[in-house]
Amino acid sequence: MGLSLLSGTYVVLLLAMIGADFFYTTPGHLWRALGSPEIRYAIRLSLLSCSLTTLLSLWVAVPMGYLMSRRRFPGRALLDALLDIPIVLPPLVIGLSLLILFQSPPLRALERIFPVTYAIPSIILAQFMVACAFAVRTLRTTFDELNPRQEQVALTLGCNRSQAFWRVVLPSARRGILTAATLAWARSLGEFGPILVFSGATRMKTEVLPTTVFLELSVGNLEAAVAVSLLMVGAAVGVLLLIRHCGRPDPTSLHPL
């Protein structure tokens, strides 16, 4: 009874929190927010940066997750612990660390050719540092759960190691890859601390959706802040549903995802 009451209170609070956003705003607020050029720019930049970050994260996380799952090498435990750093580090510290890193002479030289700090690439890098860690964790678990016998059978059937990976391991890991991608995308969408420090909050330049909420709040435009928040709630719920769908195999299905 006590446990039910405790759990129920939390769920009610959760729903009330999201409901409060809904009831605070009106379709007019939402429509006006969507009509604002700044907010439209933030939506476009958020979608673009999150998608690029997701692709980059998968590009790194697939081989790294596979390596961590299947290979034993010196320093593996240390690398395993290092990969958790972006997950446990306070977001602002990640932004600050990136900012300091890009003050070092070699990266300052790079910035003269390819500006990163306070520019769009800094947003992608800040999102990537956190999202990639989540993608690696997800994919490592995925590869851990895959039966290595499938790969071995593929080798006996005539595959070399690379063919076994592309033809058997990757298709078998498709659900995990999709889950990692949606997680990376969702994490990137909500990333704010590192972006504020490393990219700044310049309108129509480095403004992503969390930056918009922050900027609108700072000038007292609560309606616009809530309207943008609702857009992010909608995206988060969509991603959550997709993860749930991907992560739950249907044992009765005759056709895999």
Binding site: N147, R149, Q150, P171, R174, P256
Partner: peptide, 8 residues
Amino acid sequence: QDGALFDF
């Protein structure tokens, strides 16, 4: 032992 069929 388990056949290790490719589920996809």
